[in-house]
């Protein structure tokens, strides 16, 4: 009962902090709370228009820019969402039912496995995790293939899909499902891939692999295939999937460490660290000259960090809340904490 009152209180305190104590940066912003919605009492207005997807624990939905909740539903087993459609699926499923952002059924696709929606593309990862297929917007099968080993990492852009495997192999497939690049990171005692990434412009791919040592490998696309151009021995040795991602502009690659994340600046070769305790939840990483946002969770506390790569923190704030979601649209943030969603505008001073 006490928690119920504590969460809104911390939310208000966070917003007050953002509003009253903005930090100076190369560009100064004021963080201006616009609206706040309590999902327990929010009314559902399934209207069309641009929406922001959110997921808070066992609840998910879409919210409009002005705060109308378009869809609010309970997760069956898991849910995949993009800005136009979602699939709320069960753990054993032979159909994927697509619904739009007003909750209307778009189509039902007969397929077994778990769906993946990414970069406007739709994949199915089979239950045994050794087979992947892609379907078009109508649900028609484009390609399907089995692999030798269990898929342990996956990254998608509009052109390619990169896959990392339990046997240490790394493959890049084109939009026809053909293997255009096959790379086995070498030099580690144990061969496993723990994370893969693809830059939006398809210029680079990255892999975290191996134990003894664990390594970050950067690959570059040349003559239609990806070849390694850089290797970095890592201090950590994760034995689970890890965060690895390029900034939207491809200027940086960020990776998870035991105490936060590090990101490598390709132009200078410099490595920067962002520290936080606990689990990494989300990273919004536009690139050079833009603010990066990192959300993490430690026990019942969340941490929001906003900073310019290589520069100072604009915000480094803890708040009470175990279910957290952060979305960014231009200079607007949509921050979900437990049962509330808040819109915060970054207003340039």
């Amino acid at each position: 009962m006490r928690k119920r009152f504590l969460f809104p209180l911390f939310f208000i305190l966070l917003c007050s902090y953002l509003f009253l104590f903005p930090r100076p940066m190369s560009k100064e912003f004021i963080y201006q709370p616009v609206w706040s919605r309590d999902l327990h009492i929010a009314s559902i207005q399934p209207i069309e228009g641009p929406v922001i997807d959110f997921r808070l624990g066992n609840f998910f939905g879409y919210v409009h820019e002005e705060g109308e909740i378009s869809v609010l539903d309970r997760v069956t087993y898991d849910v995949v969402m993009d800005e136009e459609r979602y699939i709320n699926y069960s753990s054993v499923s032979d159909h994927h039912v697509f619904l739009d952002t007003t909750g209307q059924i778009l189509m039902s696709v007969e397929t077994r496995g778990y769906p993946i929606l990414s970069s406007g593309r739709y994949f199915t990862l089979r239950g045994d995790m050794v087979s992947l297929s892609e379907r078009d917007d109508e649900g028609e099968l484009l390609w399907s293939r089995d692999f030798q080993s269990i898929i342990t990492g996956l990254a998608v852009n509009k052109e390619f899909i990169a896959l990392g495997f339990l046997d240490g192999d790394f493959l890049v497939l084109n939009s026809r499902g053909e293997i255009i690049s096959d790379f086995q990171p070498a030099g580690s005692r144990i061969r496993v891939v723990y994370g893969v990434a693809l830059s939006d412009d398809s210029r680079n791919a990255a892999i975290i692999s191996g134990i003894g040592p664990q390594k970050l490998s950067i690959l570059e696309q040349r003559n239609g295939t990806f070849i390694p151009i850089f290797n970095l021995e890592l201090e950590d040795e994760f034995r689970r999937p890890v965060y690895l991602g390029f900034s939207d502009d491809g200027a940086f690659v960020g990776y998870e460490t035991s105490g936060g994340i590090k990101y490598l600046d390709f132009s200078t070769g410099s490595l920067h660290a962002v520290e936080f305790p606990g689990d990494l939840l989300s990273v919004n990483f536009p690139g050079k000259g833009s603010l990066t946002m990192v959300v993490s969770r430690h026990n019942e506390w969340g941490t929001l960090q906003i900073f310019e790569p290589g520069g100072e923190y604009a915000i480094n704030q803890d708040f009470l809340g175990s279910l957290i979601d952060l979305k960014r649209r231009g200079k607007t943030l949509y921050l979900g904490i437990d049962n509330r969603i808040e819109r915060i505008d970054m207003v340039e001073r």
Binding site: V80, G153, V192, R239, R240, P241, Y243, E256
Partner: peptide, 25 residues
């Protein structure tokens, strides 16, 4: 042996969806 990989069902936001659920290798 040596645990070389584990995945907790739905715990890691950057992991592929796991039809094998929570598993250890």
């Amino acid at each position: 042996g040596e645990i070389i990989f584990w995945m907790e069902e739905k715990r890691l936001p950057f992991a592929p969806p796991s039809g094998l659920g929570s598993f250890v290798v």
